[in-house]
Design a protein around this nucleic acid. Sequence first.
DNA 1: TAGTCGCTACTTTAGGACCT
DNA 2: AGGTCCTAAAGTAGCGACTA
Length: 202
Amino acid sequence: MNYKHLHYFWTVLRAGGIVRASEQLHLTPQTLSGQIKQLEERIGQPLLRKVGRGVEPTDAGRLVMRYADDIFALGASMQEALATGRDARRTAVLRVGIADSVPKAVAFHVLEPAMALPEPPRLACHEGGLTGLLGELAVHRLDLVVSDVPAPVNLSVRVYTHLLGRTGVAFFAAPRLLQATGWTLRRARSAFPACLADMPLL
DNA sequence: TAGTCGCTACTTTAGGACCT
DNA sequence: AGGTCCTAAAGTAGCGACTA
């Protein structure tokens, strides 16, 4: 196993493409493509397949990626332990799934109190769709899922939903848009959200 | 609707630099 | 000398915009 090749593969999937990964790694796309090809030859099966103009992992690629996540997370925690003198492996790990629809600032706000504990856990955050995250929760790969909606009532998995907070939603419009649709700001405010029916809303 | 063009992303090939 | 890693150049393929 050449861990440099594995790191290139891992970076490509995290960056979302060979070109973006090559920019992060200060290499050319040809180099990354060639190195990943060598990794595939050593493993004996393809890890990436072309989809449109990009690439996506094969089943084997997803398996390798899960191991690579653990390998490089362990490497990062080793560096942290060397820098801080605190062995991260001795601290509890809180594995959190964050739904795509949740703004990162909100997720940070929700998780921040955990980091203020006397013995703060090591946070491992995973982003994804709610359905996939709940599946991970069901098989105990996650401890917690942060979402902007409660778990579906027809979910076959037993989970507990807790309201952690509320936030408002802001709508912005140019004044001339209100005028064009025959509304004034005062009337639109009092008739919200019914007034949206007349608005070109994206 | 089909063909063309330009752009983007990726792969292949050839060859150079460096290290053991 | 041979292996590894890298780049430049050329080629392939997908996608969107434009046009007849």
